[in-house]
């Protein structure tokens, strides 16, 4: 079976899905989107790669142990939440500030973005751990 069409279309489509995932992640504060759906999109792009290639090839492409990804995401979330305790405010209190960055101009930096990064990493990790575990069990 020669899946030349599937391979070529995947090479074109995966970057678009990845960009859309990142856009959804950053749009989460003002528009529909956020860490959860962005993470699912990123996992979906990797699942498309898994459909076209086999597990070993995708592991070579993306050499990440997804279990560590889950831990990193949880650390991000807990660290952002516990960071508020250092400033004598309740747990999970977020801080934000408008910063004038070069090139970007007036940008609002919010610690909720870090919390959402944790959500994103956990969602990607858990989805791919589930799928790869099912895929490998013969």
């Amino acid at each position: 079976m020669n899946n030349v069409i599937l391979r070529t279309i995947t090479a074109v489509v995966v970057p678009i899905i990845a960009l859309f995932s990142i856009q959804l992640f950053f749009a989460g504060h003002y528009y529909p989107g956020g860490g959860f759906i962005g993470g699912l999109m990123a996992a979906g792009a990797i699942v498309l790669l898994l459909i076209v290639f086999d597990i070993r090839t995708v592991r070579k492409m993306i050499p990440i142990n997804y279990q560590w990804l889950i831990g990193t995401g949880l650390l991000f979330a807990v660290g952002t939440s516990a960071g508020s305790l250092l400033f004598n405010v309740p747990f999970l209190t977020h801080a934000y500030r408008y910063v004038h960055l070069p090139l970007l101009g007036k940008t609002s930096l919010h610690t909720a973005v870090l919390f959402d990064t944790g959500v994103y990493l956990v969602v990607v990790g858990i989805t791919l751990v589930i799928i790869e575990t099912i895929g490998e069990s013969d």
Binding site: N2, I5, R7, T8
Partner: peptide
């Protein structure tokens, strides 16, 4: 690869013909 893909998609999208497989 991309040439074969584009040709197959053009053939498939014109009704009456459908690409089933590539050797």
């Amino acid at each position: 690869d991309w040439e074969v893909t584009v040709l197959s998609l053009l053939i498939t999208l014109t009704p009456g013909t459908l690409v089933l497989d590539v050797s």
